[in-house]
Amino acid sequence: MSWFEKLQNLDRRYIYIVVALCIIIPFTFTFHTNTYTTEPVENIYQLIDSYAGREDRAILLSIEHDPSTSPELQPMEIAIVRHCFERGVKVFFLTFRITASPIIDYVINTTKEEFADIQSGVDYVNFGYKPAALYLPIILGMGDDIAEAVETDSEGRKLNNLEIMKGIKNYNEMNLVVEFSGSSYGFGWITYARSRFGANVAAGITAVMAADTYPYIQSGQLVGVLGGLKGAAEYEKLVDLFAVNQLEFSKEQEKQTFPRINNDDILYKFKTARIGMNAQNVAHVMIIVFILIGNIGYFLERRRKNKQGEGS
């Protein structure tokens, strides 16, 4: 039995140990890797950034996932909220999923800790949880009047009384909805808000779903997509590079500059995805090696069986 054939019959528990080590070691010795951004992520960043400091523009983050997909989706939510807080973009939060309600609070509080001046009702507002039965009435109703469709925020305040709502009426002003979801739940925004009112829609989704969204990017129905941990890492980089320094986006600068993630200049919570991508990179290389070994072993085994068949 050759070395490759022995590997074919290897106890799967050894593979688990190798996978665990591939992830633990990069966390133990944090090193710097370059993150390169892609167009779907840059499009979302640039659109949000174009609303900086404007009274008559806002974005809506529709958070529709539970804690099971938080490792992928939470870093991108924090990165976008941080971008909005840094650049003075009005941001609304909403969920139709009851278990997402505490996640919204966590994302807001985690980001807000670093921004002393940010106030609820002035810079952001959490519409809170709305029952799924109101999904259609709210999405369609926001096309006419957001304050009328949503009525109150998570603290029970009338939206009409909030300072943040000045200059914001419907999708003409709240002209970007970013849906964070671990499933295809979020395509309601494309179906209703995009088709009916022409609202810009973007998606922050788990990597499992990312491939399915590309037809919607190609057709222009999605402005952009943050796909899994990689998408989150890209957005984190853009925020560190441009939003924190109050700079306009520049592709040339993005290609040449890489904020260091292996020192303390950037808080851990704002580089979670990029540190995670270190482990992801190592794990991917390991999986490629495993697939290659498995295939070589398979072909060697098949050749041996063919030879045995010819001999007998």
Binding site: I23, S70, V208, L229, G276, A279, Q280, A283, H284
Partner: peptide, 10 residues
Amino acid sequence: VMARISLLIG
């Protein structure tokens, strides 16, 4: 694969 590894990373 990326999604599953991400959950483990989390």
